[in-house]
Computed example of a mutant assay.
Amino acid sequence: MENPYAAARAPAPEPPPRRALFSGIVAAVFCLLTWFTAVGYLGRNSFRFSKAGFFVEPSPNNEIASLQALWEHSQHLLLAASALCIMLGAPRLRVGALRRARVVSIWALAVGAYALYEFIVKSLSPLIAGMP
């Protein structure tokens, strides 16, 4: 007679490996949402920014020129951070230290993207009278 409890004592099968791409995609979505929020902020306040000369070339003063350069470069940086998050998340790493370093770098990129957005908003707001 077979033992009915033998299956319960058998070792559990290994769980399937988690998708390594998940954290990269989530961080990339975070970076892209930050980019869309920054673009929406600029679009929503475009009339006020145009009155301050933000969209004028050449810019009326050096402060606005530096903020224009920051805005232009930050768009490229946010999109590049999104692509880099996906590329870092693509390989499946089984080594613990490398995997942790990859996840930390992915989320450091996402947090850096949000910090860059906050810096841009805080830099542009004082230029416009009556900005919230």
Rank of each mutant, 00 (worst) to 15 (best):
L33N: 09
R48K: 01
A27E: 08
R99D: 04
F36G: 08
G130K: 03
G24K: 01
A12V: 15
F55V: 05
W107F: 09
G43M: 08
N45T: 08
C31L: 12
I64K: 00
E57I: 13
E63N: 08
A10K: 14
Y114S: 12
G96Y: 11
R92Y: 01
L88K: 00
V103M: 00
A80G: 12
E63L: 10
I120F: 02
F119H: 14
S123T: 15
W71E: 06
P60C: 09
A108K: 07
F55E: 06
Y114W: 12
V111N: 01
A69S: 05
G24Y: 02
P17S: 08
F30S: 02
A6E: 13
W35C: 06
A80E: 10
A65T: 03
P91M: 06
A10P: 12
Y117C: 11
N61F: 01
S46G: 05
A115E: 14
P132I: 07
P60F: 07
V39C: 05
H76V: 10
P126C: 12
G53Q: 03
L33Y: 05
R18S: 07
I106H: 00
P15D: 15
E2H: 10
H73Q: 09
A12W: 11
L77Q: 11
A113I: 09
F119E: 14
A113E: 02
A110R: 03
Y117I: 12
P15V: 14
L127G: 07
F47W: 06
F30L: 12
L98N: 10
L109N: 04
Y41W: 09
G89E: 04
E63R: 06
G40D: 05
A28R: 05
E118L: 15
S23P: 00
L78R: 02
A38E: 12
A108Y: 04
T37S: 11
H76W: 08
P13M: 04
F36V: 13
R44T: 13
I106G: 01
G53I: 02
L98F: 06
H76Y: 10
H73M: 03
L98Q: 09
V29E: 09
L93V: 06
Y117W: 13
L32Y: 09
G24I: 04
F119L: 15
A28K: 04
S105W: 02
L77G: 03
C85M: 06
A83N: 01
A28C: 12
G24D: 01
S46Q: 07
E14C: 13
T34P: 00
A8S: 11
S59V: 09
V29C: 13
L33V: 14
M1E: 10
A108D: 08
N61W: 00
P11A: 15
E118C: 15
L70F: 10
L42G: 05
V95I: 07
Y114L: 11
T37N: 12
G112K: 07
M131P: 00
F49K: 05
G43N: 08
A52F: 02
L79R: 01
P17M: 01
